[in-house]
């Protein structure tokens, strides 16, 4: 039916694809940005946390398949993936990063690369470097037609879950006591201690949250793309990191905006040029954005009032 679509409809269809891709980027970028905001660490293991989430989702779904098929099984598997990855992220924070918080930044960065390689190689060994395939038994092509474009149910669910999570996170950071403590720690840790805030506990919570979001993205990706591989976290890790920087690293709405923008640019790039040129197109534009706004779209400039 592709021949029946007008140019605009094709572009709209790509827009939907871009939003999906962008939602994955945004969910992963949030964890990058939150962790960077609070302890100024580029957590290179974050992409591997995403990958772990996809694996746990696939494995749990396999175990549940006889008992809980379909959407219920998928939902449970994703929740299990989020819990597992949240704990994994917290453990990395507790035993690898926390002891080095007072050390030079570079040591912390190398530790993050180390954690990344440990997770990556563990999963590679367990799976013998083979991709695993996910079959939900649901009709992936089923969906609704709006005008000339088709949006599948999986896409709809994915977009609504991502939207709800992002709204929830924004409310949490913006108005709860713990959310305020997170923002305050990003600004001034010692003063937070003097307010009675258990800084280590809140940092741990940030890792729990960020890792759970990455695993949510991983689980959704597993369901959406239908396959999982040990190296799937690498590219998305770099892209999510890029998205966080474009949005203004440390900024929660920035990570969401940067992720969605990058997804859309890639989709449009695929449409206008060719899929092999999509990264050239997207990253070319991103470099341009950074030249114009070095602190990212929603990042704060470092000019301070005395």
């Amino acid at each position: 039916m592709v021949f029946a679509l007008s140019k605009w409809e094709v572009l709209l269809q790509q827009g939907v694809n871009g939003l999906i891709l962008g939602s994955f980027y945004a969910l992963v970028a949030l964890g990058y940005s939150m962790v960077y905001g609070i302890i100024k660490l580029l957590n290179f293991a974050h992409g591997d946390i995403y990958m772990t989430g996809a694996f746990v989702c696939l494995s749990v779904f396999g175990v549940l398949s006889g008992v809980l098929p379909g959407w219920a099984g998928i939902a449970c598997s994703i929740v299990a993936a989020m819990i597992f990855s949240a704990v994994l992220g917290w453990l990395a924070q507790r035993f690898a990063y926390r002891p080095l918080l007072g050390a030079p930044r570079l040591s912390l960065l190398i530790t993050a690369i180390g954690v990344s390689l440990v997770i990556y190689n563990t999963v590679m060994a367990i799976t013998n470097s083979q991709p695993l395939f996910f079959t939900s038994g649901l009709d992936n092509a089923a969906g609704i037609k709006i005008g000339g474009i088709t949006v599948t149910y999986i896409q709809l669910i994915l977009l609504s879950v991502a939207a709800c999570v992002m709204i929830g996170l924004t409310l949490f950071i913006g108005s709860t006591r713990t959310g305020k403590a997170m923002r305050a720690i990003a600004l001034d840790q010692d003063t937070c201690r003097l307010m009675g805030i258990n800084v280590n506990k809140v940092i741990g919570l940030t890792f729990l949250l960020g890792s759970a979001l990455a695993a949510l993205a991983g689980g959704l990706a597993c369901v959406y793309y239908g396959n999982v591989q040990y190296n799937m976290g690498y590219t998305i890790g770099i892209k999510a990191f890029t998205a966080a920087v474009i949005g203004g690293i440390g900024s929660i709405p920035g990570a969401m905006l940067g992720g969605l923008l990058l997804g859309l640019l890639e989709a449009v790039g695929t449409q206008l040029l060719d899929s092999s040129w999509k990264d050239v197109f997207a990253f070319g534009l991103l470099i341009l954005i950074l030249i114009l706004r070095p602190n990212g779209l929603l990042g704060k400039s470092e000019i301070e009032r005395m």
Partner: peptide, 13 residues
């Protein structure tokens, strides 16, 4: 906390 509002600063107290 310069990027937090006056009320938020007080609440953290």
């Amino acid at each position: 906390f310069k990027d937090l509002t006056v009320s938020e600063n007080l609440e953290l107290g």
